[in-house]
């Protein structure tokens, strides 16, 4: 339970995902489940696809029609609570924030990890963006087997 161990429930997670048909294009998944005073996801979105409104404690709502999956919100979120998800053939492709060292390298296979911190699959590193624009929060693009689309959340280096 989120309040007790930091793990969002399946219902919470699913509430943030659009249908698989929509996910043919890349979309932002905002895993921000409580009212905290914060709005950079909304103000940084160049497409006005994330709505918070005047009261910055309001939880973000993504307009999937406007979201292009560009990933700016991913590295703008102070809680590192946003990923971009997309279905590409039989794979789920994610763009996720990564703030540890060493950074992954394109082509490497890392462990795919779920929200409880357990290794659930392998993840292929497809792209690593680490420029001045992302301000030290690397944007890592990975792909994992499609069946893990609702469980996968981050990557861990294989030791």
């Amino acid at each position: 339970m989120l309040n007790r161990d930091g793990v969002a429930s399946k219902e919470q997670v699913l509430s943030r995902f659009p249908s698989n048909e929509v996910l043919v294009k890349a979309k932002a998944i905002t895993e921000c489940y409580e009212e905290i005073p914060c709005n950079p996801c909304a103000t940084s979105c160049p497409f006005d696809a994330i709505h918070i409104g005047e009261d910055i404690n309001t939880k973000p709502v993504v307009d999937f029609d406007l979201c292009t999956g560009c990933g700016i919100c991913v590295y703008s979120c102070p809680g590192l609570a946003i990923v971009i998800a997309q279905i590409v053939n039989d794979k789920a492709r994610f763009k996720l924030p990564y703030e540890l060292r060493p950074l992954p390298i394109v082509g490497e296979i890392w462990d795919g990890v779920n929200r409880s911190g357990d290794v659930i699959c392998k993840a292929l590193i497809e792209k690593v963006t680490y420029t001045a624009r992302v301000d030290r929060t690397a944007l890592v693009q990975v792909s994992v087997p499609l069946e893990f689309i609702h469980e996968f959340i981050t990557v861990r280096r294989v030791l």
Binding site: E99, L100, R101, P102, R136, A138
Partner: peptide, 9 residues
């Protein structure tokens, strides 16, 4: 022990 590599600093 000193930090040698750090993601932010």
């Amino acid at each position: 022990m000193r930090i040698t590599e750090h993601p932010i600093l």
